[in-house]
Design a protein around this nucleic acid. Structure first.
Length: 322
DNA sequence: AACACGTGCAACCGCCTTCGG
DNA sequence: ACCGAAGGCGGTTGCACGTGT
């Protein structure tokens, strides 16, 4: 039994040990057991479910595994530009209400969004040497990074292959932030409309231009609330996870069932600062060898946190000190 | 090749809320 | 109204893997 991931713990652990409860990473067999059980009986009553299915796991563990990983509508892989924009926007509104934010990103789990926030956004707040909750950082996010994301989304819609953005686009003429004050933001592009209204006020009409994906309210979204009855009709008993996940052709199924390999953000390009911000090809690396914004790092999703952000932040701080 | 370091993310913990008897 | 169980949520941890030296 693989207990590598087991955490040292408390009295509960000894109690669980007595019951021979497993902890740590789930095995393929456990996943199959859980999937098949839910396919037959539905979800809910997690403690009972764990016992009935013969899983030596806590109900909580089963629930978490199902909701964050095994549920058929869970999306894994790159967080899209639109999703990143939504996360930034919704977090600025609601803070660390991950589950609430997740309701507006179909297929994304609160855990995934939380991880995204912590690993990406908080990391860069740290790099900018400011608190993630500080006004300066929030302003930088709102008036610099979010408009930049919008530009990227628009640019991607305009030129899906090669993106050329003029320097003028970086002048923040875009009045993104102002719309936020109206409890609504709208991103216009040439193809369609992407908007978000406060869910407490009205139904959403969120139509992303890049995909056919429709954004729905939590109330009518299958991902917003757990759907206990839909799954049973979709999946009959399976014996192999490759039946469950749609494995792309020419893909090693064993490899495919590796979340860490699927979740490759490296090709998720948010910006290309050397071209986007500094069209003359300014070499940021040579400017400051200690800069944390490594343009050659390969993870372009980090690249909209850059020297310009630093300057913007410094300006904010100066303004506040005046 | 081997090691050190950094990063991403699955899984766990503990607290709070909701539900049902 | 009360209480215990279950569910939900945000915070945290630590392992696997990638990258640099």
């Amino acid at each position: 039994m693989d207990e590598k991931g087991a955490r040292s713990s408390n009295t509960l652990l000894s109690c669980e040990d007595e019951m021979d409860l497993r902890r740590g990473p789930w095995t393929v067999d456990e996943d199959l057991t859980l999937i098949n059980y839910i396919a037959t009986h539905g979800e809910g009553r997690w403690n009972t479910l764990a016992l009935s299915a013969g899983l030596k796991r806590t109900g909580k563990s089963c629930r978490l595994r199902w909701l964050n990983y095994l549920r058929p509508d869970v999306r894994r892989g790159n967080i899209t530009l639109e999703e990143q924009l939504l996360i930034l926007e919704l977090h600025s509104r609601w803070g660390n209400r991950w589950s609430k934010i997740a309701q507006y990103l179909p297929g994304r789990t609160d855990n995934e969004i939380k991880n995204y926030w912590r690993t990406r956004v908080q990391k860069h707040a740290k790099q900018l040497k400011c608190d993630v909750n500080s006004k300066q950082f929030k302003d930088t996010m709102r008036y610099l990074w979010m408009p930049r994301l919008v530009e990227r989304i628009q640019a991607a819609a305009t030129a899906p292959v090669t993106t050329t953005v003029t320097a003028a686009a970086t002048n923040n003429a875009f009045t993104y932030g102002n719309n936020l004050n109206n409890n609504k933001f709208e991103v216009l592009n040439h193809k369609g409309r992407m908007g978000l209204t406060d869910p407490s006020v009205a139904n959403n009409d969120f139509v992303g231009s890049h995909v056919t994906q429709s954004y729905t309210t939590p109330e009518n979204s299958s991902t917003g609330a757990s759907s206990s009855d839909s799954f049973g009709t979709q999946v009959s008993t399976i014996s192999d996870l490759t039946e469950y996940y749609s494995v792309p052709e020419n893909t090693n199924s064993a490899d495919y069932y590796q979340p860490s390999q699927i979740s490759n953000y490296s090709d998720n390009c948010i910006t290309s600062p050397s071209g986007f911000l500094f069209p003359q090809g300014l070499d940021l690396q040579s400017m400051d060898p200690n800069t944390p914004w490594n343009m050659q790092s390969g993870d372009s999703s980090d690249n909209f946190w850059d020297v310009e952000s630093m300057l913007f932040l410094e300006q904010q701080l100066m303004n506040d000190n005046m």
